[in-house]
Amino acid sequence: MGLSLAYWVVLLLFGMGLYCILTESNLIKIAVGINVMEAGLLLFLVRLSYSPGDLAPLMGPTTGPGIADPIPHALTLTAIVIAASTTALMLSLIIQIYRHYGTVDIEEIRSKMQ
């Protein structure tokens, strides 16, 4: 396949994160899986906006061609901030679940709920 390495890393991270979410029963590990998936997605956004030889969008005294598109970079920054916010809320909810049920395993929580 002619995909560049970055895309393979994106697919690996995304697949690993999704596998973790689908198979793990520990809530903390599910949160980690979501974050790994997000990392893959952010790498995808940054890679999409980049052509080989592009420079970072920092303008010096001389501005030449081949500057990377700054808009996806700003969008990625937004996505990182939202990801951090949702992770904070996720972990807080997990802490509260642990205090209430004494475990973070979803199978055990399910059996305790009945």
Binding site: L58, M59, P70, I71, H73, L77
Partner: peptide
């Protein structure tokens, strides 16, 4: 990849229009 008109505008005039040399900060 050919960049969109919006990107070309930001790269070409961003420093003049915002005064910031970090174009990501200019966009943000």
């Amino acid at each position: 990849v050919s960049q969109s008109a919006l990107t070309q505008r930001i790269i070409g005039k961003g420093v003049v229009e915002t005064g910031a040399t970090n174009l990501v900060a200019a966009v943000l």
